[in-house]
Structures are given as C-alpha cells and as structure tokens.
Design a binder for these strands. Structure first.
Lengths: 195, 195, 195, 195
DNA sequence: TATGAATGAGCGTTCATTCAT
DNA sequence: TATGAATGAACGCTCATTCAT
C-alpha cells in the first residue's frame, strides 16, 4: 500500500547523507549544521525536512550507522577467550561512543528511544549489541548460570557506566577499559568452585 | 576568608529556589524557564546569574535535593534481607528518576561521579547512593567475592539500564523493577557453587 | 478552435472542487491547503496546477461562486422600496463577505473590477453587483440627480467601508448594517431641497 | 505601573526604524527584509522581535508613520473651497497609498485592524483622516444636511474605491483622481435647490 | 494529463547568558 | 548585588509552485 519509494528519493537522501558524512569527518558530529548539509548536498532546505523530521533524526542515522559498522565488524570476530579479549573486541566501539562528548550524549538520549514505533537507528543498535555479545558469550569461558542474553545486558550496563565515568572529572585518570575489566571480571567470570 | 554571606543574598536565593519549586511542581522540570523563575521570584534576570553560575546549577540543585531526600530515607532503612527487599527500598528513588524523561536525562548526564568538591549536587548523590548500597550489602546475604563497593557500582549500572529501557518503546511491557530483579539476582546472589 | 474539453478533465476538476468545498465547509477558507485538496480528491499535486493556474484561481472560483449564488437570489427580488429594505436584501451577501476575515481580504483584493474577460470570478461579481443594484435603484424612491450606476458604485463603496469597520476593534459595538443605514440614507435619499 | 521605558530601549528602537527607513527609501516597502534591517541597525535578530511582535508590526508602523506625515501636512492646509481642491489636497496621500501595490494591500489589511486594543498605526490614521476631512468640510461649500463626520466617512469610502479601481486592469485608463471627482461631486455637492 | 519530489527565500523562534549601568 | 535590554546562532517551518518523468 505504501507507494514504492522512487529512485530519485533515494538519490537525494543519499546526497544528504553523503554531505553529512563529509562534514562530520571534517569537523565532527557536534558541528554539523543543517544549512551546510543541504548546501553541500546541493538541495533545498525544504528538501531536508521532507526527508528527515528534524536534524536529530539525521544525527541518529549517522551515529547509528557508524555503530552498526562497528557491530558488523564485531560480529565477524571469533568469540573472545576471556574478559580481556572481549573488552579488546569492544574497544573500537567504545572509543567511537566516547570520542566526542556530544556523541555520547546523543547515544544516551536515543538509547532509551522516544516512545512509539519509530525507534531510532541508535536504539536499534542497542538490540544488536546484545545479540552480538550474547553470541560471543555462549561458547566462551564465562558464567553459565544465567543466560548469555542476560550477561550481554549486563555488559552493556557496565559499558555505559564505564563510559559515563570517562566523562567525569573525578575519573579522568584511570582509562575506561581498565574500569570495565574490573566490572566484567566480576560479572562474567564463572563463580569460584569453592569460595 | 570566605566572605560572610549576607542575609540579602540568602533571601534572594531562597526566593529563586522557592519560585523554581513552584514552577516544577506545577509543570515539571523540563518546562522550567529562567525567565519565569525570576518573574515569580520578583527579581531581575541578571540576579539569577549572580546566584547561580547557570541554569543547570539550579536544576542540579533541585533534582539533587530531591534525590538526597530519598537517600536520607534509604539510609534509615535496615539492610535489606534480599534482592526483592533491596529493590523495594530503591523503588521510590527509581520512580522519581524516571517520572520525567527530562529528569532522567539530566541525571544520566551528571552520573558517574563519586564524591569530591565542586562536583554538582546530582553527582554527589551518586557517591552517596554507592555508600548507602554498600552499607546494605556488607551484612546481607549477598555475594562476598567482590567488594560491597563494586557491587554497589553494579547496582547503579543495572538500575540505569533498567531505567533506560523503561523509556524505550521496545520494552514498554515489563515494568522497570521486574527487569531489575532479574539483573540483581544475577549480580548480587552468591554464586551457586559457593552456596 | 478551443479544443474540446475531455470528460476526464471535467471529472478531475469536479473532484478538486468537491474536495475544496468539503474542506472549506469543515474548516473555513483560510485553512484550505492545496496539499489537502489533492489528497482528498485523490490526485497528485501537479494535477491541481494542470487544472487551475494557481491556488488563487480556485479560491476565486469558490468565493465568487458563493457570491454569485447570493446575487442570483438578489436579482430575483423586487426593487426595494427604501434604504432599509435595500440593506435587508443585501444582508446575506454582506454576512457571507464578513464571516471570515480572510474571505473579506480576498474579496477586497479582487474588488473594483467591472465585467470583462479574463477577470476573475470575484471581480465579475462586482460588476454584477453594480448591475443588480442599479436595477433596483432605477425605479425606487432614490436620488435621481445622478445615474443609478453611480449610485450603485457608491453603495459598494459604503458597503466595503461598513464591512471594514466591522473588523476594526474600534467599531465593534455598532452592527454593520446599522452603520450602512446611516451611509446609504445620506447617499441614496433624494436631496431634501428637491423633495 | 508599567515600568518606565529606558533610554537604551528607545535608542535601539530608533536604530531599527532608521534602518528600515533607509532600506525602504532605497528599494521600497515590499523588499524590506528583517535580516537586512537588523544588520543595518547593528542589532541582533532577537532584538528585533523583542521590539516588534513580527515584521508586520514594523511595516504597520512605517506605513502608518508616513501616512501620519501626510495627514500632518493636510491638517495645516486651509479648508478647500470645492471638490477639486479637496481632491488636490488629498492627492499626495492617495499617491503614497497607491504607489506600491504592496503598500495598498497592507493598508487595506490593517485598516480594519486586527481585533483587540493593539490597534495598529495604520488603523489609527484612518481615524485621523476622518477628523482632518471633517474639519475641512465644516466650513466649506459642501452638503450640510448631514454631519461633516459622515461626509468624511464617505470620502474615505470613495477614496478606497477609487484606489482599488486604480489597481484593476480594466480601469488603468482613467486616472484615480478623475474617478474620485465624479464620486465626490455626487457625495459632497449641496443638493440642487430645485431638481 | 498525471505524478510527486524538489524548490526556496525568509520569517519567527528559542532562551540561556552577558554586560553596561 | 541588582537590573533588564541585548545577544546570537541555528533550527524549524511554510506551502504554493515547478518540472522531469
């Protein structure tokens, strides 16, 4: 019923996204301006808002896209043999998420997405993240008394916590991943057979 | 050294805070405008910024104050005898933190800080939260292979996760506390093999 | 010469007009949007402009049509026996013209035109209005020292004035027709000395 | 109670108006852009909207001011000795009102001002116009069977009619004032003593 | 004729923050 | 301390009209 999307539509959308990408890689996410995007894309401002409800929607798409790329890469990796390797595998993703305070804020804001079925791109990546992790955990030397899915949920929770601390003045000293090691050792390590 | 705080200062500050409280209880945190606060307080816009470095500082104070009230209450409670009771004890706090999306966002942005000077009121509550929890955990039927402090860190991480999902349309079904039960059972329960 | 109008053309045109009518009676003239008209008519945006040079043309048609209906009715009436009756005869027309500020504005902008080709529908009604009035005036107890046509011109001028004041807050008290009575008494009544 | 207006406020307002005047005299009313006004005035855009609710409000002021200037001049003139002189006296005003289609439209739209007490500058000039005219008519060789005020009302009505016809393609031939002569002869001339 | 994505110029808005008085 | 006018940089929006298909 929804009429088929025309090729022209996709072309224009592509131009907008390409323009945004260029700007972002040149000056970062925070400094992306709608005005500049449409200029670079060679389309009218009205066209932008015909494709995206607002600037935030494009931002969501751009950041979500980047996260998806990382997840694609992660999904290829063999299951990690321990916490250290697991964190090493996650590191590029964590680095991306924290490389700009603005990006982390956007991610946080979109992670618990706006209600309704228009779940944004970022919110969807959170689901994928869990899936990728759960796959890793299933076969590895990790806790087995709870489901891999639950373990993955926890990894996410601890990762967010570690990233949040990364932006806290009090914790600038210790690197994010080190903090995560402590958390995940406690969370993922199989219980000592004898206390 | 610290110049003596004049009475006038405190009076004005009080008027500003009272005005903010009125507005917040009438229309919520998100819709508080500096303009309206000063109007209701009967002072000029500039006066606001003579008392608070920025709007965020007042916001931080208002939300932080409210959280502190909850923590005061929680600190009085006897150590919970299990996960269920622990969560029951936390519930009013969690409810406050999630009763407005905006409030949760502000809290998240300030999260991840432990006590020290010049840290905002909200950040300080996170430190207190850890302390309150750690005290609870020390004597209870909880995991002992890691420090109570680390356990408390984890509770915080899982609570944030549960609250974030609360705002996500994909997870609107299950109530927040139920999700938290699952998380904390897995996190706090002494490993089965050690039982 | 004039190419034969195809049936399809008329059908589409009819659908557009019907849609416009529906929208207008639901929400008034001012809020009619081309977008909505074509949606309701089930045709594409471009089709609209294949049938009407611009939105104004449709507007002109809709309002002009409505005025024509009133004029048809007025033309049937016997010549009024005095100013009061004359105004009574005009009242439905005046009411339509002033029931929406937007409508009055459109009419004003198109006003001042007498009949001829390629003049819009509203402009043409002004010509008709003059004719109807002039016919009424010819035989009645009205001033005879100037032509009925000129008298009719004046009625129009005074009617516009009365309607404009109707929209002016300064004159909200007195009803439009009362104002018009005063004007037309002075304009149409045979000069006293000539009585 | 309304706090006294500060000098700075008036200065800024003056700068905005001066800038608008410059632009208008350079390129006309229609081409006045808010952006350009604030640039030329050397103030921020936000400042503009702190002084005027919208562009239209400034427009109203500019056009209303210009009309007031004409009315000031007209108020100085001795009462005209007949219709011809009366129209000659009005001509600069009529010329201003019709020198730009855009200006005439604005005037029409504001003449029957937006409801409420914020009667615009233009709407107020309509009142003045009546007063100036009425003063002229009181002593001259004009109809005496109705009040000068009513006569003035009529002049206004006929003037608007004449101006409207001026913009009508069908009436481009005859000059506006000639049309007005006919109208006003019929409206103002004392009734022939013997018909 | 019909389609519908694209156009486009400028208005109005936002509101925390600054700064001269 | 107190005042409140001024700042400012985008964003979002409007929506009739055009034009390539």
């Amino acid at each position: 019923m929804g009429k088929p999307i025309q090729k022209r539509t996709l072309v224009t959308r592509g131009k907008l996204i390409a323009a945004a990408e260029e700007i972002i890689s040149a000056r970062g996410y925070e400094d992306m301006r709608v005005e500049e995007v449409v200029q670079k894309a060679g389309v009218a401002k009205g066209t932008f808002f015909a494709h995206f409800p607002d600037k935030d929607a494009l931002m969501d798409l751009m950041i979500g896209g980047r996260i998806d790329t990382e997840l694609d890469r992660m999904a290829q990796l063999p299951a990690p043999g321990g916490v250290d390797e697991l964190i090493r595998n996650m590191t590029p993703l964590l680095n991306f998420m924290t490389h700009e305070r603005y990006v982390f804020d956007v991610i946080l804001r979109h992670s618990g997405a706006a209600a309704r079925e228009d779940i944004g791109a970022i919110a969807r990546t959170f689901g994928r993240q869990i899936d990728v992790m759960a796959a890793w955990l299933a076969g590895g030397p990790f806790r087995k008394d709870v489901s891999p899915h639950l373990l993955a949920d926890g990894i996410q929770a601890f990762a967010v916590q570690a990233m949040a601390l990364h932006f806290c003045a009090l914790h600038n000293g210790e690197p994010m991943t080190e903090r995560l090691v402590v958390y995940l050792d406690a969370w993922l390590t199989p219980p000592p057979s004898a206390a």
